[in-house]
């Protein structure tokens, strides 16, 4: 018998890591990007199927974190998991992602999350050394993805969705 589950999931990352463009082609959205800069979030949905289970991820794409704006913490409330996005070519964005992870963990607790390193198509220009990458892999489920080619995004969603269904 088919079952339908829904989960709230937040997308978190520094400004300019390509968070929105990364997920754009994998999700369905009826709202414009303007909401990101006005009320600070934009809602998208992602439908996943695991055998007989259908999972709807209601994605709260939160506007990027930088020195001018902060993620609105109340938007994290009720999230079952989150997806951290960073830009592999800028190490600072990875650190912002980790900082956001800590903030989110305080609000929603220890919930499933994945770290997506964007711009896999520019792997040669990444600012992450092997040791750092190993450290990240030890702490997170890390996915290398490319907004340009779309590679890796679906896998990241599926992994997060799978983890959410296990809980």
């Amino acid at each position: 018998m088919n079952t339908l589950e829904k989960r709230k999931v937040c997308l978190l990352g520094a400004t300019g890591v390509g968070k929105t463009s990364l997920v754009m082609r994998f999700v369905r959205s009826i709202f414009s990007d303007q909401y990101l800069t006005t009320i600070g979030t934009k809602i998208e949905t992602k439908h996943l199927t695991y055998g007989d289970h259908e999972l709807v991820l209601v994605l709260w794409d939160l506007s990027g974190e930088d020195e001018f704006q902060r993620v609105r913490l109340s938007y994290l409330r009720g999230a079952a998991g989150y997806l951290l996005v960073a830009d592999g070519t800028r190490r600072a964005t990875v650190e912002t992602a980790i900082a956001l992870h800590h903030v989110a963990a305080e609000v929603v607790g220890d919930v499933p999350r994945v770290l997506v390193l964007n711009k896999a198509d520019l792997r040669a220009f990444w600012e992450l050394d092997d040791a750092y990458e190993r450290e990240l892999t030890a702490r997170f489920s890390v996915f290398e993805a490319s907004a340009k080619t779309g590679a890796g995004v679906e896998e990241a969603f599926r992994a997060l969705g799978h983890a959410l269904l296990q809980r």
Partner: peptide, 20 residues
Amino acid sequence: AEDPDQVSAMLAAIDDFARD
């Protein structure tokens, strides 16, 4: 009916936004 999940989440977001 637009995607009810999105509409509802957006309403919740606006609710949060207004309160904050």
